[in-house]
Amino acid sequence: MDFGLSPEQEAIIEGVAATCRRFGDDYWRDCEAEARFPREFHRAMAEGGWLGITMPPEHGGAGLGVTEAALMMHTVARHGGGMGAASALHINMFGPHPIVVHGTAEQKARWIPALVAGTDQACFGFTEPNAGLDTTSITTFAQRVPGGYRVNGRKIWTSTAQVANKIMLLTRTTRKEEAARPSQGITLFYTDLDRSRVEVQRIPKMGRAAVDSNMVFIDDLFIPEEDRIGEEGRGFSYVLDSLNPERILIGAEAVAIGRDALERASRYARERVVFGRPIGQNQAIQHPLAECWAGLESAWLMVMKAAWLYDNGRPCGAEANTAKLLGARAGYEACLRAVLTHGGMGYAKEYVVERLLREVMINRIAPVSEQMILSFIAERVLEQPKSY
Score class of each variant (00 low, 15 high):
D2R: 08
A18Y: 08
T19K: 05
C20M: 06
G24W: 11
G24T: 07
D26E: 07
E32C: 01
A33I: 13
A33P: 04
A33K: 09
R39L: 07
H42Q: 13
R43P: 10
A46Q: 06
E47V: 04
W50F: 07
W50C: 07
L51P: 14
M55Q: 14
E58H: 04
G60C: 06
G61E: 07
G63V: 02
G65D: 02
L71D: 06
L71K: 07
T75H: 03
H79G: 09
A85I: 11
H90Y: 15
I91E: 11
I91N: 10
M93Q: 11
V100S: 08
V100T: 04
V101F: 07
H102C: 02
G103A: 00
A105Q: 10
E106W: 02
K108P: 00
I112L: 12
V116P: 11
D120F: 12
D120C: 08
G125F: 03
G125I: 05
F126I: 07
T127H: 15
E128C: 05
S137R: 14
I138K: 01
T139E: 12
F141N: 03
P146K: 08
Y149P: 00
V163K: 10
A164I: 02
A164Y: 00
L169Y: 02
L169V: 00
T173K: 00
E177P: 10
R181C: 07
S183Y: 14
I186N: 01
T187Q: 02
T187S: 05
L188A: 00
T191V: 02
D192P: 03
E199W: 07
Q201L: 13
R202T: 13
I203F: 04
G207R: 01
D212P: 14
D212W: 07
S213A: 15
S213L: 15
N214I: 10
V216F: 01
F217S: 13
I218S: 01
I218C: 03
D220S: 08
L221P: 03
G230L: 00
G230C: 01
E231W: 09
F236L: 09
I250E: 12
I250C: 08
A252P: 02
A256M: 08
G258C: 06
R259D: 13
R264N: 05
S266M: 09
R267S: 03
R267F: 09
V274R: 04
F275A: 12
Q283P: 09
Q283L: 13
A284N: 07
A284L: 11
I285M: 10
L289I: 01
A290E: 12
E291Y: 12
W293E: 15
E297C: 12
S298Y: 06
A299L: 08
W300F: 09
K305M: 08
A307S: 01
D311I: 06
D311H: 05
N312H: 09
T322M: 08
T322R: 09
L325R: 12
R329S: 13
A330E: 01
R337S: 11
A338V: 05
G343A: 03
G344D: 11
M345A: 12
K349A: 14
E354L: 15
R355Q: 06
V360K: 01
N363R: 15
I365F: 09
A366Y: 12
P367H: 01
E370V: 06
Q371Y: 15
M372K: 15
I373N: 08
L374F: 04
A378F: 05
R380V: 11
Q384L: 13
P385I: 00
P385Q: 01
